[in-house]
């Protein structure tokens, strides 16, 4: 029983860390641009597809492939923000519909380039390790460790750099931040780029564990959505805590019931949160 508990907790935390990686960007885009980014799953897919091309097809080193794919997606993210989202910043509904359009187009491009089939790739890391009573595949552990490192780095960036400060200021109050000299539009582009890079990093890390397909981003997007609503739209600490909570809840449900029931449970949580406390666990009231 103790072994099972340990296994559930380890599984929950490892998948929770990947949810956090997705949710951080999702919540930051909402905090700064007021756009609910339905294309977030497609940015995850871009990361995975990039790794598929670079590592599997061109034979570039795996870790280098992940970094390149994340950087590439980040640049694409900046371009998308500049060209498509900028007219709709703070116009929540139009921005959200625009993100649907972007999501459809990115899926379409992946469909044309990759084809509809699921494509597996060789696992760069294999084997398992015992952590206390839990048996953990090494690649999952590596993904969790890298995710944790990136999450810590990202927090340091937000807390201790001028750019990070200015980003938090824009999220808090756009007008006042602009008056204090924060470059509001550059911050939005940078935030979208970083968010895209984080999502692509998650996709690139998970690509060898699952397979790559044009529609693979839909489920991670739903998870990020649930996490962010739970933690509070626009709240960074909310995304971290929410991600870990959803990871653990899902691990419990998936062990004792089935994964569809786990998803139903998470959407019922979302319904309850929006109805009772729309700002989530950590969100602030928005003017």
């Amino acid at each position: 029983m103790i072994q099972l508990t340990e296994q559930i907790i380890v599984n929950g935390i490892l998948s929770g860390l990947v949810f956090v990686l997705m949710a951080l960007g999702f919540t930051m885009i909402f905090g700064i641009m007021r756009v609910v980014n339905f294309a977030h799953g497609e940015l995850y897919m871009m990361g995975a597809a990039g790794v598929l091309v670079l590592y599997s097809q061109w034979g570039i080193d795996y870790s280098l492939s992940v970094i390149l794919a994340a950087l590439f997606t980040g640049v694409v993210g900046v371009a998308i923000e500049r060209s498509l989202f900028r007219p709709f910043v703070r116009s929540e509904l139009n921005g959200m519909i625009m993100s649907l359009g972007v999501s459809i187009c990115l899926q379409a491009i992946a469909l044309i380039v990759l084809g509809p089939a699921q494509q597996a790739m060789a696992r760069p890391i294999s084997g398992v390790i015992r952590l206390g009573g839990a048996v953990v595949p090494l690649d999952r552990l590596a993904v969790g460790g890298i995710a944790l490192g990136v999450i810590v780095l990202f927090q340091v960036f937000l807390k201790y750099t001028r750019t990070g400060l200015s980003m938090r200021a824009v999220a808090q109050d756009r007008e006042v931040a602009a008056l204090m000299g924060a470059r509001v539009q550059s911050m939005a582009a940078l935030a979208f780029g970083i968010a895209a890079g984080l999502a692509a990093l998650a996709g690139g890390l998970m690509a060898p564990i699952y397979s790559v397909a044009p529609y693979m981003g839909e489920l991670p997007m739903l998870k990020a959505f649930v996490v962010v609503v739970l933690g509070g739209l626009g709240s960074i600490p909310g995304a971290v805590v929410g991600g870990l909570i959803i990871g653990l809840v899902e691990s419990v449900f998936a062990t004792f019931f089935d994964s569809t029931l786990a998803l139903i449970a998470s959407f019922v949580i979302v319904l309850a949160i929006v109805l009772v406390r729309p700002r989530g666990l950590f969100g602030k009231l928005q003017a």
């Binding site: 959407f267 979302v270 929006v274």
Partner: peptide, 13 residues
Amino acid sequence: VYFVLLTFAFAQA
């Protein structure tokens, strides 16, 4: 936007 998210979650459930 919260109404959209609410109805989205309802439809998913």
